[in-house]
Design a protein around this nucleic acid. Structure first.
Lengths: 348, 348
DNA sequence: CTCCCTATCCTGTACTGTCCAGTCCCGCAA
DNA sequence: TTGCGGGACTGGACAGTACAGGATAGGGAG
């Protein structure tokens, strides 16, 4: 195996070739493929291997020498002298939509990452083409890419464009990619991720509250399937699995309207805040008592739900942002499941 | 086949030649002949091929560069950077911080503006230098700039850098600028704005509820002065004016702690949600009754505050976003005060 | 020692974008 | 009429990229 085989450089016509070489060496250092005192390919070797002019490689090596990343020994070669690379960290934070939960993740992420960083937030509204556009346009501009992949899932698109998404995601160096919230089983590689196990989470959390849930006659989940911003269907799957395994009668509805029929002993699981609001209003209007006549479990916690005594099943959004920031700070590529739990309050 | 063969431009003597080149490139992008990251002919090549002056081509390319359709790399050439959004209305939405209220403004703005638009959201964390950086970097790239100007107001900065901010804001063509939330009296010109009159709003809203407020012995405002993200001091001014004019005893505190003393007949006005939460918890712990022993008026409405029966004084965030979008759609440059009102519920 | 590799420094060439000082021409307003 | 400004063109200076060479000096293995 030749030394040149170690070095990987990406071709991008927009960027000067010498700069690509510089970036390539830096990346190989950052990823650990090149360590301190390692010898890097000679000017001749590299120029021949990549079919470049000797002058181009020389220019690149001179820049690295000026930056004290490598030193030269006449007649021998170039050697790595520094592996710690100091610069402000730039992060692209790509979310599908802007909810108050996403916002909390972003805010805790920025706070944890600290001052020596800058995070650009972009929203792609679950639109694949916008997602692809944003990503390809910024493919080399950032040090890290924190991405929450959620897309509209019409049957056709799901097949055709997910591949396109994966193709672009693969262009991001593994060490720079952090997948958040939604895990992409189809994306291979050793990248970092902080995910919710939507199906397993809801199953486990509901199982925690099984004893109380059993007291209800029927469980109704308000799952907004028609929404422009769809929630992962795995929430439904986990809910169904829980109900079936415990032989609990259940139902799934799109939305809670003012005239949605409800009976004593109904337990509602709401995902959208608007459903929670109209549900609580209705319960009050009908003179029913929360946690006795009607049960509510709401998805995603907020301080005001605490005040209202609404039982929630929720992931820890602040934690999710912090974990992502820490993966970057520690340069780890672990796959971390974000904590999810049932918080029992009066409404159950 | 030469690169120049790809490019087609129509000749029309009525239209400036440089504009024809611009249109030609755009058309070639729209028709798919030019894709992202493609290299377009050099200035020399194009000018020779179409028998044009180098200067004319240069001018055209500069326009495309300003519109971020292409980027230049010295010594290399011009490259396509944008393919999807050139026909859409591009908006830069610049907010000081990301709160759930800002988010609602953004979401209603995007929704009202509709599909033929793209809105980039950027957060500058109340940091002037970041604000200036973001704005100067994107000074020509967008069709509209929606900006919420709120900065940290240390005495010194307030003098020196506000001028800098105004200087950059003046560089934005008046027809492309929409100032939101905070009105900038110091910025001259005929631009659009949707503002809150922080001082007058709170004064008027509290006056609406004067009869009930009079029943309380003391009014305490929790105004987070120490926060990294300061609220406009005009809120305080309006509050003070109301209290003084109506001879009501009042007090201003930074934050509501677990051990903040409260007596029967105290009316609290909270701005931050965290203060509201700890206040309500304390009232409950002490066995007091909201709206009788202790009054609460909270700043900024949310659906869950409605459920909790918290009286609020609030602007209409969704309306604010909609208004801004409509100003753009109608190409108006009006100065619109966003509605603000007292919503009475049980807590007062 | 020789031979082959190494870095280093040099001159040239042919492109590229960037910037500036001029010069016309033409339409429009004072 | 005069003056102004924008469009188009001319020509050049300058700097950056990438290539092709060559000349020199040092290191290491035979």
């Amino acid at each position: 195996m030749k030394v040149t085989d170690h070095i990987q450089i990406r071709d991008d016509s927009r960027i000067p070739k010498y700069q690509q070489i510089v970036d390539g060496i830096i990346e190989n250092i950052a990823s650990g493929k090149l360590k301190i005192d390692d010898k890097i390919p000679s000017i001749n070797a590299l120029s021949e291997h990549f079919l470049l002019s000797r002058d181009t490689v020389e220019k690149a090596y001179n820049i690295l020498k000026d930056r004290k990343v490598i030193t030269s020994v006449k007649g021998k070669g170039f050697y790595i002298t520094r592996t710690k690379l100091i610069s402000k960290v730039n992060v692209l934070f790509l979310v599908n939509k802007l909810s108050s939960y996403k916002m909390r993740i972003y805010n805790s992420f920025v706070a944890r990452l600290g001052g020596n960083s800058h995070t650009d937030l972009h929203v792609y509204h679950c639109d694949e083409s916008l997602f692809l556009n944003l990503l390809t346009k910024n493919l080399l501009a950032y040090d890290y890419y924190v991405i929450m992949p959620h897309f509209k899932t019409t049957a056709l698109q799901h097949i055709s464009s997910t591949d396109e998404v994966l193709r672009v995601l693969r262009k991001i160096p593994e060490s720079k990619l952090i997948i958040m919230d939604n895990d992409l089983q189809k994306l291979p590689g050793n990248y970092a991720e902080v995910y919710q196990d939507f199906k397993g989470d809801i199953y486990t959390a509901l199982t925690q509250g099984l004893e109380k849930i059993k007291n209800y006659r029927r469980i109704i989940m308000a799952y907004p399937a028609q929404s422009v911003y769809p929630y992962p269907r795995r929430i439904l799957h986990g809910f169904r699995q829980f109900c079936v395994e415990n032989s609990l009668p259940f139902e799934v509805i799109d939305e809670i309207y003012d005239d949605t029929v409800m009976h004593d002993g109904d337990l509602f699981i709401t995902i959208e805040e608007s459903d929670l609001v109209s549900l609580v209003k209705q319960v009050r209007d009908k003179g029913m008592v929360l946690g006795e006549d009607i049960g509510i479990i709401s998805y995603n916690d907020t301080p005001l739900k605490d005040l209202l005594g609404i039982t929630v099943i929720s992931t820890d959004f602040d934690q999710m942002g912090r974990t992502a920031a820490e993966l970057i700070l520690d340069k780890r590529t672990a796959s971390v499941k974000n904590p999810f739990r049932l918080i029992e309050r009066e409404s159950l």
